[in-house]
Amino acid sequence: MAHGDTVPMPEAQPRRAGGLATLLRTQMRNIAPFLTLIFLTAFFAIASPSFATLDNVGNILTQVSVTGIIAVGLTFVILCAEIDLSIAAIANVTGIAVAFFTLQDSYVNIANLPLPGFAAIMLALALCALLGAVNAFGLTVIGIPSFIMTLAMMQIAAGISAMLVRGQIAYKV
């Protein structure tokens, strides 16, 4: 190019027409789960008359509430580019600890410490907090990678669960 020549500028792309169809195509990754949920809800409402009742909606929301709370907490962990593999095992230990620390009926085949409900819940939460503190200490002070530390804590929590129920299955706690 000689001095004074201008560089040709690429022409602007013409605006594509199509509106809604183009928007749907470009946003399908975001829209697909929502459309699937709507389709499944409609299918089950037609297949079972008791599905589309307020009692069933309340039951579904009750069942997914714990998972939703855990998912919100794990969102922050993932946003920090970390991972927590021990969350389900620690939640399991917490539930088993509440059962262990409360008075159970005679048909429950695991040994337990008969404490009032409030004290059992507080002890179970303290155990959960202690396991979380061990996780935090390993990650922040010692510097163990989160994958390794939470994998180890998952095994530790599974062992604590098995120890509390003495390797037995308690169905009706």
Rank of each mutant, 00 (worst) to 15 (best):
D5T: 03
T6H: 07
T6N: 13
V7S: 07
M9N: 07
A12W: 01
R15S: 11
R15V: 14
A17V: 11
A21L: 13
L24Q: 00
T26K: 12
P33G: 09
L40K: 05
A42F: 13
A42H: 04
F43D: 02
I46H: 11
S48V: 02
F51L: 04
T53W: 07
T53M: 11
T53C: 08
L54D: 11
N59M: 06
I60N: 03
I60T: 12
Q63M: 11
V64H: 02
T67P: 01
I70C: 09
V72S: 07
G73S: 09
L74N: 05
L79N: 10
L79W: 14
A81Y: 06
D84M: 06
A89Y: 10
A91F: 10
N92Y: 13
V93E: 03
T94F: 02
G95C: 10
G95M: 11
F101W: 11
T102P: 00
L103Y: 09
L103M: 10
L103P: 04
D105S: 14
Y107I: 06
Y107C: 00
I110F: 08
N112K: 07
F118Q: 09
A120K: 12
M122K: 03
L127T: 13
L127F: 01
L131Q: 01
G132R: 00
G132W: 03
V134A: 13
F137I: 09
L139Q: 15
L139A: 06
F147K: 08
I148Q: 02
M149H: 05
A152Y: 09
A152M: 14
M154Y: 12
I156C: 11
A157V: 00
G159R: 04
S161I: 00
R166S: 15
G167K: 04
G167S: 06
Q168H: 05
Q168R: 11
K172Y: 11
